[in-house]
Design a protein around this nucleic acid. Sequence first.
DNA 1: ACTTGAGTTCGCCTATAGGCGAACTTCTAG
DNA 2: CTAGAAGTTCGCCTATAGGCGAACTCAAGT
Lengths: 135, 135
Amino acid sequence: MTIADHLGFEMSPASLSVGQVAAAAGVTANAVRFYERYGVITGHRNSGNARRFTVDAICRIKLALAAQRVGLTLKESADILAGIPPLSRDLQQWVAAGEELVRIGRTRVDQLQATVNELATLDFLQNTRQGRPQA
Amino acid sequence: MTIADHLGFEMSPASLSVGQVAAAAGVTANAVRFYERYGVITGHRNSGNARRFTVDAICRIKLALAAQRVGLTLKESADILAGIPPLSRDLQQWVAAGEELVRIGRTRVDQLQATVNELATLDFLQNTRQGRPQA
DNA sequence: ACTTGAGTTCGCCTATAGGCGAACTTCTAG
DNA sequence: CTAGAAGTTCGCCTATAGGCGAACTCAAGT
């Protein structure tokens, strides 16, 4: 089973425009170009210099958006995505990336929880003593 | 009991310099001026145009830093702090602000947890179907 | 032929949270 | 008096994540 099958694609001939990718990923065309500049997605150009992407790009953007929600930057997402082969026939790599995201997310939750627990002591208001003031 | 007593201050005559506040709050003098511009703290000027703060400022900065750790912006901190009277004799207001922070933190934890749970389904990779591609 | 829509690049603008250097003033000490 | 430490304002720089308009190309439809 390919990732495309899994996602319900009728394998498109690797030629989605910026606008199509944008609409499918739920972002603006502007953002799509931005993502390309930052290496979240890669594409090629047609004869008229217009960007062309594969459905792969949509998945990558969605993964990056998901990553953003657990606090990753686009750069970090780009790094994770760099390890996933283009339009992989191997759904496992995408699932693995998703699971890494979940792991990271859980870690962030734990960290935030720890921070809150620490704050709950209100200690951050303490130890505010300092030297003699002056006129 | 005043907040100053609680925090162990020998009530200083309301005249800490930028540098003193910075050192006490664990930030740079630069940051202190920044916080003043953004209304996190307020101060007055001495005869030489130098900023003078009360110990109050240190508490406010510490609270803002704590707030940052649970995801609040400086503006949001400034808003919370705006509700606390200067060098209040009422420790309760500071404790209450701290508790509000903890509540907000817990909410953020819950939200993040929910996001992670949602991501765990890997659904964010689904529904990537879109219209017919073109050359 | 003309218009329209979608694409392109370029570069400036936003907000957030400061860092940093320049140039200048003020204060304090020796 | 003079040096140094610390203060001041101003403005540019950083990173992150884009928004937006200008000016232009390109392909398609009527």
